[in-house]
């Protein structure tokens, strides 16, 4: 391989990396307040500075971190913490399953890296791609930039700590809802996708209201299977 084409390859990797970082930027901004909260809440729950940062640096899962801090504060047992973590994190199993065609053929270090970075936000960007559209550099750019933003926000939360205004009352969770809406709605281009969205929405509401644990997963699976059955029924209706 001559040097020029090697440079071209490097340039295209770099381009994809930047494209991924750019694509995840709105989501990174939307979670900044949550990052702040994750940092300050960890400190408030009795973790030291290093432990608080480690929550973001190695656990790296917003909802798990916030729930865990609540449990630290309440003095819950280790087994309670792990069982709760398992519940909160179970949706990642679904992401990992959905991304299997995209990532399982990658070399080990790519699998480990992209697996570690596989958050709601990364899945929001890459989960809708077909395996042949998937670019590992794009995913890496998105995942790393999101990781850096999350950790920087947590650090500010740890340092600023108690001086921050009451973040929970500001209603910043709307930012997360807005980004997910912005990512999902353009995907609605067919009747089955519309059905998936409507069923997931209604079911998640019902399950949340009856306080079913794991409701998120059940609502999602119900919506996915229904949408697929509708797709098959449509195909059969057209008589192929």
């Amino acid at each position: 391989m001559d040097l020029d084409s090697q440079n071209d390859l490097g340039a295209s990797h770099w381009r994809e990396l930047l494209k991924g970082a750019l694509a995840v930027t709105p989501l990174s901004i939307a979670v900044l307040p949550w990052g702040l909260l994750a940092g300050s809440f960890a400190l408030e729950s009795g973790l030291d500075v290093f432990q608080s940062q480690a929550m973001s640096a190695i656990v790296f899962a917003g909802s798990t971190q916030l729930v865990a801090c609540g449990l630290f504060k309440a003095g819950a047992s280790l087994s309670t913490m792990l069982l709760t973590t398992l519940f909160v994190t179970s949706r990642h199993l679904l992401y990992s399953l959905a991304m299997r065609p995209h990532i399982s053929k990658q070399p080990l270090r790519w699998r480990l890296l992209l697996g570690f970075l596989l958050t709601d936000e990364l899945f929001a960007l890459c989960g809708k791609q077909k395996p042949e559209q998937f670019d590992r550099w794009y995913a890496l750019g998105a995942g790393l930039w999101f990781y850096l933003c999350w950790n920087a926000a947590s650090l500010v939360g740890i340092v600023a700590g108690a001086q921050l205004p009451n973040l929970q009352e500001l209603g910043l969770d709307f930012a997360v809802a807005a980004t997910f809406i912005a990512l999902v709605i353009p995907q609605v281009k067919s009747l089955p996708v519309l059905a998936a969205v409507l069923i997931a929405g209604v079911a998640s509401l019902v399950f949340e209201l009856i306080e079913l644990s794991g409701g998120l997963i059940f609502a999602s699976l119900l919506a996915m299977v229904s949408a697929y059955l509708l797709e098959k029924a449509q195909q059969a209706g057209r008589g192929r």
Binding site: F123, V184, Q187, P192, A196, L216, A219, S220
Partner: peptide, 10 residues
Amino acid sequence: YSSAAVLTAL
């Protein structure tokens, strides 16, 4: 359909 479903349920 997982992406559309899970993100909506979130």
